[in-house]
Design a binder for these strands. Structure first.
Lengths: 65, 65
DNA sequence: TCAAAATGTCAAGTAAGCTTTCCATTTTTC
DNA sequence: GAAAAATGGAAAGCTTACTTGACATTTTGA
């Protein structure tokens, strides 16, 4: 699964640490998501989508297998 | 987080076991999701949405805190 | 009504998401 | 070009998603 987190965060001009704070996760979690080390939980995906005012599907790109 | 899994599955007239097979998870996982014992991973949520031809947001209802 | 099918749910184990701590590397700014 | 700020990423530990297996309860249908 790919995602547009880094792109969207930079559009907003905020740091990983700031995004982490509003989402109530650690900075390392944001970095790990941006760099594809793991996928977010569905709860975190919902929080992210809400923050960016977008749907989950617009931010996280599902690729089968 | 609430979800409409049981309702949607029954609309389709299929058993938990059949849904589990097409989604490639165990029957217990489907039961656990329907009864709210835990939330799906985002990958499973995508598979479910694809199966029902709906968006994640139409099936899983996010409720803060 | 009674047997078979479907669902509920627990327990124990594995895998994945997330945390904190720590340090290295890159980017920014003066 | 040096200091400060931002990001990358590893390790160890905790929590949660998911598995298999087993058994109890509910629902369905002949």
């Amino acid at each position: 699964m790919k995602n547009r987190l880094e792109e969207l965060r930079k559009q907003r001009g905020i740091r990983q640490e700031e995004l982490a704070e509003v989402l109530e996760v650690s900075r390392q979690t944001i970095g790990s998501l941006e760099n594809g080390r793991y996928n977010p939980s569905i709860m975190l995906a919902f929080k992210i989508a809400k923050y960016f005012n977008m749907s989950i599907e617009e931010i996280f790109i599902y690729e089968e297998e």
